[in-house]
């Protein structure tokens, strides 16, 4: 059974590009273009990994979705990668996992290098599945 990755991002072109990359690497890809749909999909489909944007309909939508995800028992330990350009735009706004207050597993700046994304996705899913 193929591993399932959920992409939550409001940019359809970006979602299409990342979907093509992940599908080429034999992942099953689910997509959502806002936080609300993303959360519903995460609860119903229980993906093995979530790629999450931060700035969507509102400035911190991704962070809100992440916090809500962690309150759902089935998604409590699902690995989440925040992929956003917010870090380069506002370096003082610490959204990296090192900052301690964002319950994500990894932060990657957008646009992300394909080989790095694939390597990190494989690693996080392997760790999660034990």
């Amino acid at each position: 059974m193929r591993n399932r990755i959920l992409i939550i991002d409001d940019d359809p072109d970006y979602v299409a590009a990342i979907s093509a990359l992940l599908e080429a690497a034999d992942y099953e890809v689910l997509t959502a273009y806002n936080g609300t749909d993303g959360l519903k999909l995460a609860i119903s489909q229980q993906p093995d990994l979530v790629l999450l944007d931060v700035v969507m309909t509102d400035r911190t939508e991704g962070l809100r979705v992440l916090k809500e995800m962690r309150t759902v028992p089935a998604l409590e330990h699902t690995p989440v990668v925040i992929i956003s350009s917010i870090y380069t735009e506002m370096p003082v706004f610490q959204v990296s996992p090192d900052a301690g207050w964002v319950p994500a597993d990894l932060f990657l700046p957008k646009p992300v290098d394909p080989s790095r994304l694939l390597a990190e996705a494989a690693r996080l899913i392997a760790v999660h599945k034990g």
């Binding site: 072109d13 970006y14 590009a17 093509a20």
Partner: peptide, 9 residues
């Protein structure tokens, strides 16, 4: 970012 992602692909 989207263009760059396509470029990477």
């Amino acid at each position: 970012s989207a263009i760059k992602s396509y470029v990477y692909l």
